[in-house]
Amino acid sequence: CHSECLGNCSQPDDPTKCVACRNFYLDGRCVETCPPPYYHFQDWRCVNFSFCQDLHHKCKNSRRQGCHQYVIHNNKCIPECPSGYTMNSSNLLCTPCLGPCPKVCHLLEGEKTIDSVTSAQELRGCTVINGSLIINIRGGNNLAAELEANLGLIEEISGYLKIRRSYALVSLSFFRKLRLIRGETLEIGNYSFYALDNQNLRQLWDWSKHNLTITQGKLFFHYNPKLCLSEIHKMEEVSGTKGRQERNDIALKTNGDQASCENELLKFSYIRTSFDKILLRWEPYWPPDFRDLLGFMLFYKEAPYQNVTEFDGQDACGSNSWTVVDIDPPLRSNDPKSQNHPGWLMRGLKPWTQYAIFVKTLVTFSDERRTYGAKSDIIYVQTDATNPSVPLDPISVSNSSSQIILKWKPPSDPNGNITHYLVFWERQAEDSELFELDYCLKGLKLPSRTWSPPFESEDSQKHNQSEYEDSAGECCSCPKTDSQILKELEESSFRKTFEDYLHNVVFVPRKT
Rank of each mutant, 00 (worst) to 15 (best):
A251S: 08
L201V: 06
W322C: 02
G240R: 12
L265R: 14
L294E: 08
L294H: 09
D276G: 06
G139E: 09
G125T: 03
V117A: 13
H341C: 15
L201S: 00
I214K: 01
S239N: 02
G125S: 09
N320M: 07
L169N: 01
P351Q: 07
Q121W: 02
L345S: 12
M346S: 03
I163Q: 00
L265E: 06
L279E: 15
G343A: 11
A316Y: 07
E148K: 09
Q339R: 09
N263Y: 03
E155G: 09
T386Q: 05
G140D: 04
E236G: 07
Y305S: 05
M346A: 05
N141A: 15
K162M: 08
I327A: 05
G189A: 09
Y305P: 09
L147V: 07
Y191A: 11
D315W: 05
L169A: 09
G343I: 15
W207Q: 03
H341Q: 13
E155K: 08
H233P: 01
S274H: 02
V363F: 06
S192V: 08
R182I: 04
T118P: 11
F299W: 12
K409S: 11
I181Q: 01
H210K: 13
Q245I: 09
D377A: 11
P287M: 11
S173A: 09
W207S: 03
L219M: 10
L293C: 09
S208F: 12
L147N: 03
K112L: 11
Y372A: 02
R244Y: 07
I357R: 00
Y300P: 00
I154H: 00
L151F: 06
E231R: 12
E264T: 11
Q354E: 08
Q199S: 05
L212M: 12
Q121F: 11
V170A: 11
K209C: 14
R247C: 10
W282V: 03
V117Y: 02
L392R: 01
W205S: 01
S158K: 08
F296A: 05
S398R: 03
G256P: 03
S260I: 12
T309L: 13
E187R: 06
P284T: 03
P394F: 02
D292T: 06
T309W: 10
L280C: 04
T241S: 10
D315L: 06
W322T: 02
A149Y: 07
E187F: 12
K350F: 06
Y300C: 13
L252S: 14
L345V: 11
N211A: 13
F290V: 01
L161S: 00
G243F: 09
W207M: 08
S192H: 01
P410E: 13
L227M: 09
K112Q: 03
W282R: 00
G131S: 02
W344K: 09
S173Y: 08
G348S: 12
R179V: 06
N248F: 15
I157L: 05
K337P: 11
M346R: 01
G256R: 05
N190I: 15
C126V: 02
T383P: 00
L266T: 03
L349F: 01
N387S: 05
N307L: 13
G140L: 14
W344C: 04
Q121K: 10
L201T: 02
P329T: 12
S402L: 10
A168R: 15
N211K: 14
S119C: 12
G217M: 01
W352G: 00
W408T: 00
T118L: 04
L107I: 05
N255C: 07
C317R: 00
W205C: 02
A168Y: 12
N399D: 15
L169K: 01
F220Q: 02
A303M: 05
I114H: 01
Y160S: 11
H341R: 10
V104C: 03
T127S: 08
T185Q: 13
Q382S: 15
R291N: 10
L345A: 02
V238N: 07
L266N: 00
T213D: 14
N320V: 04
N141I: 10
E156V: 05
L280V: 15
G343N: 15
S158P: 00
L143W: 15
N399A: 12
I405S: 13
D328H: 04
F268T: 01
R370L: 05
K267T: 09
I114W: 01
K103I: 14
E146L: 10
G125Y: 03
K360T: 03
T371V: 08
I327Y: 04
F311M: 07
R369I: 14
G139N: 09
Q339S: 10
K209D: 03
Q203Y: 14
K253R: 07
G256D: 03
R176Y: 10
I271S: 03
V104K: 08
I134R: 09
K218R: 09
E231F: 15
K337R: 05
I188G: 09
I114C: 03
L204A: 13
D393P: 04
D367S: 08
V397G: 13
N190M: 15
I154M: 06
K267E: 02
S158L: 15
Y305A: 14
I134K: 01
G295F: 14
F311C: 07
E302R: 05
V238C: 15
A303T: 11
L108R: 12
S132D: 04
V170G: 13
P394D: 05
R347G: 03
Y372D: 10
V325T: 15
L294Q: 05
S166E: 01
G131P: 01
Q258A: 15
V308S: 09
L252K: 09
G295P: 11
L133Y: 02
D249N: 10
T213F: 09
N211S: 13
L180M: 05
Q258W: 14
I135L: 06
K218A: 12
H233L: 02
T371G: 04
N211E: 08
A251R: 06
N136K: 05
I157A: 01
L392N: 06
Y194L: 09
L212P: 03
E264Q: 09
Y191K: 05
V104L: 09
Q403T: 03
E237I: 12
E156F: 03
D115A: 05
H106D: 04
F299I: 07
F365P: 14
N141T: 08
T215K: 04
S319V: 09
D312K: 14
V238I: 13
T273L: 04
R179A: 09
N130A: 12
D326F: 05
F365Q: 10
R281Y: 14
V363D: 07
V238T: 06
Y160R: 06
L123P: 01
G243M: 04
F358R: 14
D367H: 11
Y305K: 02
L294M: 14
L331R: 10
D115G: 05
A251L: 08
A251M: 10
A303Q: 14
Y380T: 11
L201I: 08
G159N: 02
R370Y: 08
S116Y: 12
V104R: 03
L107E: 04
T113Q: 15
A251D: 04
